[in-house]
């Protein structure tokens, strides 16, 4: 389907065709394969669906919706500590992640990696950290450390290492080499080249990535409570389980407000730094 861009001019008997016949057939076949995969996937999903519930969903939605209004405003005071915890999880988690991600990124970048083995190891850290969702990290850590804010913080940290390190090492690989070359030409050692030639070039990215990830982590840390890793998710889970819908809507509004504020803060800080 991507080959749509390959506009091919072929004039035979004054009939203009966008593609050659062979290409056209190939495209049709890939569409067909794609379509059958989607159909099959839909089949699998729908087999496992109880359609009665689905048909009932609009009524349910209206019902739950009406029970959520009006939000229970007085509940907000009980949410102050959970929100404070949520913000701490996100912030400290981001700090932990950045402290680890910066050296990992330098090991993973082709132009600064000390050795190929080190580079592969760093890339492995990045991939495994990225592949596992923070909720799964939290699930594991709650087992090890017990429920609480600590497990959540470390979970956020572990998940963010890969994300931050990936963006960082890509930007390290894109630096202007001549600036480093100029420092090398003065007789500077490897570490000095790093401090003077490379670090100043990637410092804005380091700051930007940290803020960006913090913004994401605020969202992510709102759900960690579902598995007992602290934060406002705990209250959300409890309220849903006890069908306290007015509390649920209050919590959702608080999350909404927190996310908006964090987005505003990160935009401000980014503007000030870069």
């Amino acid at each position: 389907m991507g080959a749509m861009m390959a506009v091919l001019h072929k004039e035979t008997d004054f009939v203009w065709r966008r593609r050659t016949t062979k290409k056209q057939v190939l495209i049709w076949i890939s569409w067909l394969i794609g379509l059958s995969i989607v159909m099959f996937a839909w089949n699998v999903i729908s087999e496992k669906t109880i359609w009665f519930f689905v048909q009932d969903a609009p009524r349910q939605a209206a019902d739950i919706g009406s029970r959520m209004i009006p939000p229970k405003w007085s509940y907000i005071f009980e949410l102050i500590t959970p929100i404070w915890d949520t913000i701490n999880i996100a912030t400290l988690g981001t700090v932990i992640a950045m402290v680890i991600a910066v050296p990992v990124a330098f090991c993973a970048a082709r132009n600064t990696s000390p050795h190929t083995t080190v580079r592969l190891f760093a890339l492995f850290i990045i991939v495994s950290s990225r592949s596992v969702n923070s909720l799964i990290w939290a699930l594991m850590l709650v087992f090890i450390l017990g429920p609480g804010v600590l497990a959540g913080t470390i979970a956020i940290g572990l998940r963010s290492i890969g994300f931050c390190a990936k963006l960082l090492y890509e930007s390290i690989e894109e630096i202007d080499e001549t600036q480093v070359e100029a420092i090398r030409a003065t007789g500077a050692g490897n570490l000095q080249q790093m401090i003077y030639g490379i670090l100043p070039q990637v410092l804005p990215t380091i700051a930007g990535v940290g803020i960006y990830r913090w913004d994401i982590n605020i969202r992510e840390s709102t759900i960690l409570g579902l598995v007992g890793a602290g934060g406002i998710g705990l209250q959300l889970n409890g309220s849903i389980n006890t069908l306290a819908w007015t509390q649920v809507s209050t919590i959702l509004l608080v999350i909404l407000a927190t996310v908006f504020v964090s987005e505003w803060v990160s935009a401000k800080v980014r503007g000030a730094i870069i």
Binding site: D176, T178, Q179, I183, T186, G187, G197, P200, Q201, P204
Partner: peptide, 19 residues
Amino acid sequence: RRARRKMGMIFQEYALVER
């Protein structure tokens, strides 16, 4: 590295560390 200290180099496009 020791020998490079005695060779100054001036670059095309300056090659200053911009930041």
